[in-house]
């Protein structure tokens, strides 16, 4: 797992992808930070949660090549014939993408410290917001990685992942939409549960619910499980 992690993490910085994602992310965070800082309302939670919407677009950039590129270049033959479990290959790749994602939020530590010099704040709220952002990212990465299993083209994987993420993001609206329908009203509840933005929001409101953490962990588990099964299935077909 560590070998795969090291290789994948390094590969983000062998290609421009890692640098571009980090640069754009830092620019965006810096801009948001500057706005809150200069407006005199140092709200670290708003800074941390600001990129949640753009995560939907850039996480697929991180995950698009994860699995399909290996297959395209036939490198999967090296991975699958090595004495390692598929799970550790998938986990290694997952953590590599997650590490880059987590790096994106590194400057917020600095921002928090700067804000703290200005006003006295509850640092738990920063911690919860960060935890929420990381869990959201982890869930998006596992979804993106699964989609990367399905296709052989990184571009298709990225488009599909963005589509899926958007649908998930818009779930609360779908939920509202069908709420008063005569026959499909029950779907409203289903959609509501599928909307991970609801679970994510509570972290930003300084509420820590173990259920929300489990919610994201189970999304990760499900998609990584599917990912392993798909790779396994390919051997049999």
């Amino acid at each position: 797992m560590i070998a795969v992690f090291k290789r994948e993490f390094k590969s983000y910085f062998l290609t421009p992808i890692g640098y571009i994602v980090l640069a754009l992310f830092y620019a965006f965070l810096g801009f948001v930070f500057y706005n809150y800082y200069s407006s005199g309302s140092p709200d670290i939670v708003s800074v941390v949660s600001a990129p949640s919407l753009i995560s939907i677009f850039f996480v697929p950039i991180l995950t698009m090549r994860l699995i399909c590129e290996d297959r395209r270049q036939k490198v999967d033959q090296a991975l699958l014939t090595a004495p390692v479990k598929l799970v550790s290959v998938v986990l290694g790749k997952f953590f590599a993408a997650f590490a880059v994602y987590a790096l994106c939020f590194a400057p917020t530590v600095l921002f928090e410290l700067i804000f703290a010099t200005k006003v006295k704040m509850n640092s738990m709220s920063y911690f919860y917001a960060l935890l929420g952002a990381l869990l959201l990212g982890a869930a998006l990465i596992s979804i993106g990685m699964f989609i990367s299993c399905l296709t052989e083209s990184p571009a298709v994987a990225a488009m599909l992942s963005i589509g899926v993420n958007l649908i998930a993001y818009l779930m609360p609206y779908f939920s509202d939409l069908v709420k008063n329908q005569k026959y499909f009203g029950w779907l409203s509840k289903v959609f509501e549960k599928m909307a991970f933005m609801n679970a994510y929001e509570s972290f930003n409101n300084n509420i820590f619910k173990i259920a929300d953490v489990l919610y994201f962990l189970s999304i990760m588990a499900i998609f990584m499980f599917l990912c392993v099964r798909f790779l396994e299935k390919r051997r049999w077909s």
Binding site: A3, S11, L14, V75, Q77, A78, L79, T81, A82
Partner: peptide, 27 residues
């Protein structure tokens, strides 16, 4: 030890780096 028809190589790595990766992968 398997050498497939098309050698499975990470082309963005250096030769030594790649062999080190395989070394780690094979534990």
């Amino acid at each position: 030890g398997y050498l497939p028809e098309i050698p499975p190589l990470y082309t963005d790595m250096k030769v030594r780096e790649y062999l080190e990766f395989i070394y780690d992968l094979k534990k």
